[in-house]
Design a binder for these strands. Structure first.
Lengths: 192, 192
DNA sequence: CCTGATATTGCGTGCCACGCACTATATGCG
DNA sequence: CGCATATAGTGCGTGGCACGCAATATCAGG
């Protein structure tokens, strides 16, 4: 995961990928939720310093490029849980892992708002959040030992859903609460 | 919701909508998850007995047409919960409502499998399942009185996730359990 | 039967995803 | 250090899709 772990080719590739997704999200934010159709592939590619064809080698749709950061973030949830001490109770471990991952740094309000409140991005945004479920379910299974049960998968889906709902609440206008507090509150609904 | 509740125009419209989505799902199943790209708009429209342009008046993408039935099903979850007796505990009411809705009749294995195991439909499928969340959260809020809390939304997301996970498990090859049993098991993970 | 409203359709347009072939650049080995 | 090979970037062409617009067909109700 660290850059040092890859050779030059892989690091260049990663940098290009991030340049494209970053440009895509920035342009989308500039146009706002109602002008997404105006964000053309050509603009994204140009802003990222690559050809339109190269953009399409990394992402197969504008929505995927725009939501790539959120998807990457989700993919890290499982690993974040695994890095918690093994003797910590599941609920505390999950809450600590999620809060650590999602508040360091605090998410970008504009980006999250763009992703979560643009109808044309809804499917891709849900996909991005649900990317957490697979690895998270595995991490839960190894932690609890209930490997062949429905429990890990259901719990992972519930946690991913709670994170999503917390994000929605955090974005509501005039909400002074820090994201961490809302996250903790939402997750506490899952672990009664 | 009953056909008698609409005038002739609305019923025709509904019939057309169902003809299109039904044709779309049928053709998608015929081609299988790996041949989705071969299901062309023209074929869907022809199979439904309408022009391609009319297809596009009802759905704005093939994925939306294919997943329409699942989306409609999800939209009914809130109402199903509301129709449970008010004095029933939340967990029992939810479980009864969901099982009633999702096993009467038993879902179509081929259709559900197509929707849930085709990567290109993943976003739309997640959207379809998440359609339950809004109405379901409202139904939970009115039932529990916790209107302004995160609880209803988080619980709704968890329930929708549990239904989705149950569907995935039910589709696993060589699984003899009836859907109702898996659903009950999955939902019991949400209500500890 | 007539009239206004709604549904259906045909046509044209801009854009997008992607296959293919070619070039440029990095990597590893003799 | 050069050379062979693998991998990234690019240009071009193609098929298809979503949708705006305007014309037409169909229907409800007086």
């Amino acid at each position: 995961m660290n850059d040092d772990a890859m050779d030059l080719r892989a690091r260049n590739s990663q940098a290009t990928r991030e340049a494209i997704s970053h440009a895509a999200l920035r342009l989308a934010i500039e146009q706002g939720p109602h002008g997404l159709a105006l964000v053309r592939v050509h603009d994204i590619a140009t802003a990222a310093g690559v050809s339109p064809r190269t953009y399409n080698n990394y992402f197969s749709s504008r929505a995927e490029a725009i939501c790539a950061f959120q998807a990457d973030q989700s993919r890290r949830v499982g690993q974040a849980l695994r890095s918690r001490p093994a003797d910590e109770p599941l609920d505390q471990a999950v809450i600590a892992a999620v809060i650590e991952l999602y508040t360091n740094p605090e998410p970008d309000r504009a980006g999250l708002s763009m992703i979560m409140s643009t109808p044309e991005l809804e499917g891709e945004a849900l996909k991005a959040f649900s990317m957490a479920e697979g690895p998270l379910a595995e991490a839960i299974a190894t932690r609890t030992g209930t490997e062949r049960d429905l429990f890990p998968a259901v719990m992972a889906a519930a946690i991913a859903g709670a994170i999503r709902v917390a994000g929605r609440r955090w974005l509501e206008p005039g909400n002074p609460e820090p994201f961490a507090a809302i996250l903790r509150h939402a997750l506490s609904c899952v672990f009664p």
